[in-house]
């Protein structure tokens, strides 16, 4: 007999290159297909490791996906899984974005755009959406067409920023977000991506009186609030988060500044 949190084997049904360094792997999983935006799964690559991954939307009912960039040993292994390959999943874990805003500003950097794609599908049917996306260069711009598809006829305005200026604005997602904020009228800002970018966005939104929510990433081992590896101040990110409100984050000593290493030592971000 299996436990509810024992990894369940899933066969990867398709692998699609999103950019030269980012891939999306799809698989069947009714429960993860229903995951709320911001929730994550712990993903086991047998023999290679296990890592927390935000659950990406799939265009096929009953399927979920992971969008991964190879940067550490576990993500490199997941990036290398081919069609027909086996992964183990447990989850979904964590809380999620409050998707009720009728005018929503979404701000994502790199694969931080993943929970924002799921968020687009959950925003109200009459929502007005602004999407600021940041990436390294023109070739790494992620999910631009997918975001328009997922908007399904709702108004969506997209601003792209690249670090090197090869597409859109030269700058970060926050610079792109500023343009959208200048046009005004957003009831909420949602962000996921590199923490310095999120911290800047939370400050920017607060200065304009727009409530923000950010999905925070930390070292995760258990994903279920047992090991404590992911703690941020007095919060356990895997259970109390990963989504936190801007007001809480503004009062956090750690957010935007420090995280825990694998040993649990506090280290600068």
């Amino acid at each position: 007999m299996r436990g509810a949190d024992t990894p369940s084997a899933r066969t990867v049904l398709s692998v699609a290159d999103e950019t030269p360094t980012v891939r999306t792997l799809e698989f069947e999983d009714a429960e993860l297909a229903r995951a709320a935006p911001g929730q994550f799964a712990m993903v086991w690559v047998p023999g290679a490791g296990e890592l927390p991954m935000s659950v990406m939307v799939s265009g096929t009912a009953g399927r979920a996906a992971f969008t991964v960039r190879a940067h550490g040993p576990s993500s490199r292994a997941l990036y290398g899984v081919r069609e027909g390959g086996l992964i183990g999943v447990r989850g979904p874990y964590g809380n999620s974005f409050d998707a009720t805003a009728r005018s929503a500003l979404l701000v994502g950097g790199g694969t931080g755009l993943v929970p924002l794609m799921r968020l687009i599908t959950r925003l109200p049917p009459d929502a007005r959406i602004g999407l600021a996306m940041g990436s390294r260069d023109a070739g790494e711009v992620l999910f631009e067409a997918r975001a328009r598809e997922l908007a399904q006829g709702r108004e969506i305005r997209i601003e792209v920023a690249t670090d090197d200026g090869s597409r859109g604005l030269a700058g970060t997602a926050v610079d792109a977000a500023r343009r959208l904020l200048d046009s005004g009228g957003y009831a909420a800002a949602y962000t996921c991506g590199p923490e310095p970018m999120m911290a800047a966005l939370v400050r920017e939104a607060a200065a304009r009186g727009v409530p923000a929510q950010a999905s925070v990433e930390r070292v995760m081992k258990c994903g279920v609030g047992i090991c404590g590896s992911c703690c941020m101040d007095d919060r356990v990110v895997c259970c109390d988060g990963t989504v936190f409100g801007g007001e809480h984050l503004a009062s956090s000593a750690d957010f935007g500044r420090a995280c825990r290493s694998k040993s649990g030592a506090t280290v600068p971000l």
Binding site: G3, T6, E50, K221, I226
Partner: peptide, 18 residues
């Protein structure tokens, strides 16, 4: 300081165990 083992490090077991 010890980093501990690589993941998977914590998984569920039957009967509500870990």
């Amino acid at each position: 300081a010890w980093e501990g083992y690589a993941n998977p490090t914590v998984i569920g077991a039957a009967g509500g165990g870990w």
